[in-house]
Amino acid sequence: MTALAPAGVEATARITAVPDGLGGTRLPVLESDGPLALRRTRGAGAYARVTVVGAMSAPLGGDRLAIEAGVRDGAALTVDSAAATVALPGRGGRPARYDVRLTAGAGACLRWLPEPLISARGSDLRMTTRVELAACARLVLREEQVLGRYGEETGTLTTRLTVHRAGRPLLDQELAYGPGAPGGWDGAAVLGGNRAAGQLLVVRPEFEHSPPETALLGDNGVLTPLAGPAVLVTAVAADALGLRRVLDRALRTFG
């Protein structure tokens, strides 16, 4: 599956989670590919857990990476990562792609909690995350974008997070930062000089009838109920640590 062409790496890692019939979850499909190495790690309760191990620094310019995770009806899966993902420039100066495709079926639970994505100077990454949820699926999803390693200028980073529930749009958000982004991304409307931005999305069917109330999380974070049965935490911070602090507050409540 891995193609090591001069154009860059093309790799797709796959996970499928199904109920094991004993109240737990098993993983009939657990396919690592190229730089995306998957390890089954110790889960909690009904959850199976998979940790993405960064076998090499990725994605590099020109790479096309993807992860597909499917949680079938009644299964429960946590996916996290061992370290931050660092987008680095490739030799040709071409953009890299990183596509995450997640599905969760009826009564399924998915916790997608990777470490931050760091946009290193000179890199150009286009990331998409597409989530398809059944009406009664549950989701906790975290995304963090960090612009530049410590003291470094940022690369160019665009992300799009699209979540559908029962076939209807629930959340659609595109972010674009860095030298290749349209103007104003660092101004008072978008980041205001902050270098880390993040989202924590929690989808629960019961929010349909009792949605959590809006809550301000300090000066630069907010928890908002969406039009559908979900809440989104949106936060910006000077650095990754400050951002995680805000998102963790909400994760403790809703995780």
Partner: peptide, 12 residues
């Protein structure tokens, strides 16, 4: 679907 985190945060 271009969005601006600070606009969303400060609106609330």
């Amino acid at each position: 679907a271009a969005s601006a985190p600070l606009l969303d945060i400060t609106a609330q």
